[in-house]
């Protein structure tokens, strides 16, 4: 009896060990391939030659000299992105709640806003704030105009995320709250929103990551000195666009990798909290 039991136990242990080994092998394979691809990429821009073929030669002196200048835009990029995402979250929440309203003007305001923003290009919206508003005598600072444009744009898209999160909370929850005598406002605040926000956090992380890159569009206006603007400025001036853009790309990429890592940690944390 005892031996059968313990051999059954070790059988399970064995299976778990095999499973773990397979997972580890997969992770190692993926990591190694990433490393090789990265090395190929680096080699491609190393300027070394294989036989008569020459890889791309970068102006490393230019890169060293301008690293600090371009990297200095990182703060501005993050600053604009964070402010924009905060504005977008506020607008998205209000819009999603507006979509639930039975009061026609509120419902209409929400759908009108989403339709208008989603029906026009982000690039146009950004220029609207920089170039069209001054014609009406409204002159905003570069950062403010950029934040307004990005925030309004992402708010419209994110409202759909919030709407899905709100409707993912079961009907029984609303009924239980109503049966306890809660008003619609109390039901929303105490029961629906806390559950919905948890569903909304992972997709909001995605939106934030894509916003850090879309913030590059505000560089086109020339008033926000973030990564992209700086790369273009030094790249054009000395005709080293290749180097300048590559450097900016690396900054964006590393930033995205870091944010993705943080997001996966946040998701794991939220999943653990799912009691």
């Amino acid at each position: 009896m005892d031996t059968a039991n313990s051999s059954g136990q070790s059988q399970a242990d064995l299976l778990v060990a095999v499973q773990k080994r397979k997972q580890a092998q997969f992770r190692m394979g993926v990591g190694a391939t990433w490393g090789i691809l990265l090395l190929i990429l680096i080699f491609l821009f190393s300027g070394k030659s294989i036989g008569s073929y020459q890889t791309i030669q970068l102006n490393t002196e230019f890169m060293r000299n301008n690293l600090a200048f371009i990297g200095g835009g990182l703060g501005q990029t993050l600053f604009v992105s964070i402010l924009s995402i905060l504005l977008a979250m506020l607008l998205a929440l209000l819009t999603a709640l507006g979509r639930l309203s039975t009061f026609p003007p509120i419902f209409a305001l929400s759908t009108f806003y989403v339709s208008l923003i989603r029906g026009t290009p982000l690039y146009l919206q950004i220029f609207f704030f920089f170039l069209a508003l001054p014609q009406l005598g409204i002159i905003l600072s570069g950062v403010l105009a950029g934040v307004l444009a990005l925030g309004l744009n992402y708010g419209a898209y994110m409202s759909e995320t919030f709407r899905a999160a709100l409707s993912s909370v079961g009907k029984g929850q609303r009924e239980a709250a109503t049966a306890l005598g809660m008003t619609p406002l109390q039901t929303m605040r105490r029961v629906i929103l806390p559950q919905a926000l948890r569903f909304a956090i992972p997709p909001m992380g995605n939106d934030f990551i894509s916003m850090t890159k879309d913030s590059a569009l505000v560089s086109a206006t020339g008033f926000v000195h973030e990564l992209m603007w700086r790369a273009q400025k030094v790249g054009r001036a000395q005709f080293n666009n290749l180097e300048a853009l590559l450097m900016a790309a690396m900054f964006y990429w590393v930033m995205t990798l870091l944010l993705t890592f943080l997001q996966s940690r946040l998701e794991a944390y939220l999943a653990k909290g799912d009691r």
Binding site: G172, Q173, E175, A176, A177, A179, V191, P194, Q195, R275
Partner: peptide, 10 residues
């Protein structure tokens, strides 16, 4: 009291 309990999970 509901068939599906409807306790608040959070």
């Amino acid at each position: 009291v509901f068939q599906e309990f409807n306790l608040f999970p959070h």
